[in-house]
Design a protein around this nucleic acid. Structure first.
Lengths: 158, 158
DNA sequence: TCATAATGATTAGTGTACTAAATAATAGCT
DNA sequence: AGCTATTATTTAGTACACTAATCATTATGA
């Protein structure tokens, strides 16, 4: 049974709309919770994500950070500029290739690491899901994203 | 096993961070897909959601629409103002209570209904999940939101 | 080689989202 | 009635996110 066969019910209640709406509102609720937990650190959720990848590997390109966060470069740039203004990172044009900009953690950026370790722990308690269910949801989210990407690849290929 | 006991692995890989990140990126991917499907209608995803609730019941207050979309009133107002500029709705101060603003669909707003019915159908194909799994995810998202709300109620009560 | 394409980053412009503060009107209380 | 608290909406200010366009630099290929 697909959505079309369900035309008697209201569009608000169609399962596809419900699922997307649930993800939309839950994602916002989580981001809000992160902003509470990250207030002490003085960073936002996307900034925290950028820190996570830089703590993994320093000196990444703007593009690499954007790809890791699944963000457009045009979104990553202003985030990293704000982080530079906060004194968390520095941005340097690469010498070999002047197009590239590498992002490095400052001492201050590195210093947030220890306090940041507490964040996912506190947030994990807040979501109230066990690890097994969380893993299943992560897999299903990846399924959705893969499906959407394939859909758009086909649409672009026409 | 909680996050703390997992202190050997990187913070990026902690299950809580992974879950939240998956929801964050998937929600954005879905919104992007909606924006493609809604381009013909000339509305954004939040505007589409507002239309859904108004098609259910016309003349709702700004606050009621905000609550239905789980948005702050301060976010709903500019969305509805843009929709008014697009000629989709009109906003009228209530006569009995001058604080209240009621939102009504215009003829143009009503006329989008038929085309909008196709949207969740096309999006459902795009996500690639069956109804049963979708329903389970919706339930789990509600669990997370309830948990977060309870957490914050307790924090406020201290 | 040199015109052209591709790449990496940024800027411009629009539309959310959020908190906090302002505004205006109504409700409640004494 | 008049003071105070509450309610509904809006405005102000900050920070994403997205598309499209721009700019500089590097890669390419006839």
């Amino acid at each position: 049974m697909n959505a079309r066969s369900n035309s008697g019910s209201s569009p608000l209640l169609l399962i596809e709309n419900q699922l997307c709406f649930a993800l939309y509102t839950t994602s916002r609720a989580i981001t809000k919770q992160y902003s509470i937990l990250l207030k002490d650190l003085g960073v936002t959720y996307p900034q925290y994500l950028a820190l996570l990848v830089l703590w993994e590997r320093d000196g990444l390109l703007v593009q690499e950070i954007a790809r890791a966060l699944e963000l457009d470069g045009a979104t990553a740039t202003p985030i990293l500029q704000r982080m530079e203004k906060l004194g968390l990172v520095t941005r340097k044009r690469s010498a070999e290739d002047e197009r590239r900009v590498q992002v490095y953690l400052t001492q201050k950026g590195r210093s947030l690491y220890d306090r940041a370790l507490e964040v996912p722990y506190e947030l994990g308690r807040a979501t109230g899901l066990n690890e097994q269910i969380a893993k299943r949801i992560i897999k299903q989210m990846n399924t959705i994203k893969k499906h959407l990407a394939a859909q758009n690849r086909n649409a672009a290929g026409l």
